[in-house]
Amino acid sequence: MEKIIEIKDLKMNYGDKEVLKGIDLDIYKGNIIGYIGSNGAGKSTTIKIILGLVKGYSGSVSIFGKNIEDESNNYKEKIGYVPEIAKVYDSLTAKEYLTFVGQIYGLSYEKCDEKSQKLMNVLGIGNAYESRLSSFSKGMKQKVVIISSLLHNPDILFLDEPLSGLDANSVLLIKEILYKLKQEGKTIFYSSHIMEVVEKLSDRIILLDKGNIVADGNFEEIKNSSFDGSLEEIFNQLTGFEEHSQLCSEFVSILKEV
């Protein structure tokens, strides 16, 4: 299999806090990677380093066989990103926003316009193509952000809670699209707190806890290595969070206070 991302001894501190403590990862073409962990585990930091949005780390990150610090590596042209909290320019129409983003990635205005209209039609929001984004619902904005991340047909896709705000039918469609992209040889980093989706969608699951990788493999491999239950239950065992019942009772009892 073709190695598409190589991470060696990746460390990152914010002040005195160690966020990443020496991550080593080889990621191969055509895989959907479930990249999960508690808040503060280092997921977003890893992805932002790979995207070139965060500096000050030690270790190395290579994409397409070249270090990302190498100025000759134009890898950013071949990646797409859906952040957890996507910010769009509300004063723009969907047409203006998508043609703007597409041109940043090197597409012509005409090709951006043509593809954007077609993709919005497929996702059921084509009638709002020339409407301002300020008038869009959360789910509609999320669809526009997903389209913007894919418009240039990237080789690697980074998705942070990509299904946020989508209705059930849209969730099914986006999941099918991700499977199809995988079959086309795309590599997908998928980060979510919805363990059921990660379990079903991912070829490989990487679980971070306090800046370290504590599990790496497909779901069956992780489950067979001394763990039982769903991915959610395994996640709780590995991250040490097993206080649900106690905290639930405490929460409800406080509500009853008069």
Rank of each mutant, 00 (worst) to 15 (best):
D16L: 10
Y35M: 03
E221I: 04
Y89C: 05
D228V: 08
L207I: 15
M195Q: 03
Q142L: 09
K175Q: 14
Q103I: 04
Y109D: 11
D209K: 13
K180W: 05
E176H: 04
L166F: 06
K200R: 09
E233K: 10
V145K: 00
D160Q: 05
F158L: 07
L53Q: 13
Q117R: 12
K55I: 07
G30W: 07
G15Q: 10
Y35H: 09
G139A: 12
N13T: 12
A94M: 02
G42L: 14
V171S: 13
L133M: 08
N39A: 10
L231F: 01
I174D: 06
S72A: 14
E71S: 14
K175G: 05
E176P: 02
E18V: 11
H244V: 14
N127M: 08
R132K: 15
D216E: 09
G126E: 04
E161H: 04
E77M: 06
V122R: 07
V122S: 06
C248I: 11
L98I: 00
Y105I: 01
E176G: 12
G126F: 12
V61H: 11
P162R: 03
L163K: 07
N127P: 01
V214C: 13
E176M: 03
G229V: 05
S38P: 05
G37T: 07
N121I: 09
S226G: 14
L25D: 12
G34R: 01
R132I: 13
L133R: 10
L231E: 08
E250G: 07
Y81P: 02
K143I: 11
I188L: 04
N13E: 15
V54K: 13
S137V: 12
K48S: 15
N127S: 15
N74F: 01
E2S: 11
S230Y: 05
I194Q: 12
L231Y: 00
L51D: 04
V19K: 10
H244D: 13
S148K: 02
K17T: 14
I206E: 12
N218P: 00
K111M: 10
S137Q: 09
C248G: 07
E71R: 13
E161W: 02
G22I: 04
S225F: 03
G165I: 13
Q246H: 11
G139V: 10
E114I: 02
V171P: 09
I177P: 03
L20E: 12
V88L: 15
E114M: 05
I254W: 12
I33F: 06
